[in-house]
């Protein structure tokens, strides 16, 4: 019996699958570039591609140099970086825990950042940089707490989701309590932060986030294949030679740091971490690592959501309001579907 014809068929099918995936990722990337360019041109004053390009290459254009170079460009960069970080972080958690509900904004990590930020704005009266650092610390500490609470002789995705939802509820009440006692001049700052907004975008905010994304993003993306094998279950992955505890630790630390850095820079832009992965899988297909497509979809969501929020309505809305309006129905859809499949996991 020869298996050569089967091997050949497999090869053809696999090549086709890899090519199709490549094409779709390229299309997402092209869409992101187009949206990025649009966001640089559109605003109160419209600038043409030629003016924008000249600014990008360091030329001086009256008006455009400031509006594009100092306002729109950092804002667009912040949107892309934060969106990519949210997408990678969310998709990492969802894939690793084999549960679309296990994204960091559902299991309390994002709320940890929010609670820390609101406390430092309202109670401690700290400035912008200190608030960002507090948000970072809040996210990391919450992740650690959820992990420790959920760890019982092993690791269960469903248990972690339930504990995370409980922790999220606790932190939400902390936020609500602090806000109820806030003075009227602290309240707008806190609310603005909570909504997730790119209004304060500046190069000083883009810098640390860019560093985090460039340093940690590739590390997490490189573990994509191990992550894909982890989806078969911890035992199966270990039997296939994945160093499960080490890989999981690096993935969790990387994802939480990305999420925390993005949250510190742009606020908890609602539901992006949660939506990016499932949408990316729907678009690109279930084979291969979901992380790179999720990064692209996350960037598209934040950049597109910000454009919509700024220009599609009578008044301007922060990006988090737009993504929240998209994300809530998506959450209901996923919940309805997962109960139909019989359980959360």
């Amino acid at each position: 019996m020869t298996t050569a014809p089967t091997a050949e068929r497999l090869q053809v099918a696999r090549r086709r699958r890899v090519r199709r995936r490549g094409t779709r990722i390229a299309a997402l990337f092209a869409l992101l570039v187009a949206l990025f360019a649009t966001s640089l041109m559109v605003g109160n004053t419209l600038y043409g591609p030629d003016e924008v390009l000249r600014v990008l290459f360091g030329g001086q254009v009256p008006g455009a140099s400031f509006t594009v170079g100092e306002l729109r460009l950092p804002r667009a960069c912040l949107a892309v970086l934060a969106g990519a970080a949210f997408g990678i972080a969310g998709s990492t958690f969802q894939t690793m825990l084999r549960n679309p509900l296990a994204s960091p904004d559902i299991i309390g990590i994002t709320w940890g950042a929010s609670a820390a930020a609101v406390v430092s704005i309202v109670v401690l009266g700290l400035g912008q940089d200190a608030v960002s650092l507090a948000a970072l610390a809040g996210a990391l500490l919450t992740a650690l707490a959820v992990y420790l609470l959920a760890y019982r002789r092993g690791f269960s995705g469903a248990r972690l989701v339930l504990i995370g939802i409980g922790v999220a509820a606790m932190l939400q009440s902390v936020v609500a309590w602090v806000l109820s006692r806030a003075s009227e001049w602290d309240l707008p700052a806190a609310m603005q932060w909570l909504a997730g907004s790119l209004n304060g975008a500046s190069w000083e905010r883009v810098g640390p986030l860019a560093l985090a994304v460039l340093a940690i993003g590739p590390l997490v993306l490189a573990l994509g294949r191990d992550l894909g094998t982890l989806r078969l279950g911890d035992d199966a992955a270990a039997a296939l030679g994945v160093r499960v505890p080490a890989v999981r630790l690096v993935l969790i630390l990387g994802a939480v740091t990305l999420l925390a850095a993005a949250t510190a820079a742009a606020g908890p832009v609602a539901f992006v971490a949660f939506m990016a992965g499932p949408i990316a899988t729907r678009l690109v297909g279930p084979s291969g690592s979901p992380l790179l497509p999720a990064a692209l979809v996350g960037a598209l969501l934040v950049l597109g959501g910000d454009l919509l929020g700024q220009f599609a309505f009578d008044s301007r809305y922060p990006v988090g309001v737009v993504t929240g309006a998209l994300g809530a129905p998506f959450l209901i859809y996923l919940l309805a579907r997962s109960t139909r499949h019989g359980g959360l996991t």
Binding site: L10, A13, R14, R17, R98, R225, G228, T229, R231, L232, G233, D235, A236, A239, L240, G241, V242, T281, G285, P286, S287
Partner: peptide, 28 residues
């Protein structure tokens, strides 16, 4: 893992994965 293989009691098939793709994970 190149010498010793294991089929656990309840492995998880990722949603939407094809047979060829899942069997291919054995090459990890």
């Amino acid at each position: 893992a190149r010498v010793l293989g294991l089929l656990p009691q309840s492995p998880v098939a990722p949603e939407g994965i094809t047979v060829a793709d899942l069997v291919g994970r054995g090459r990890h």
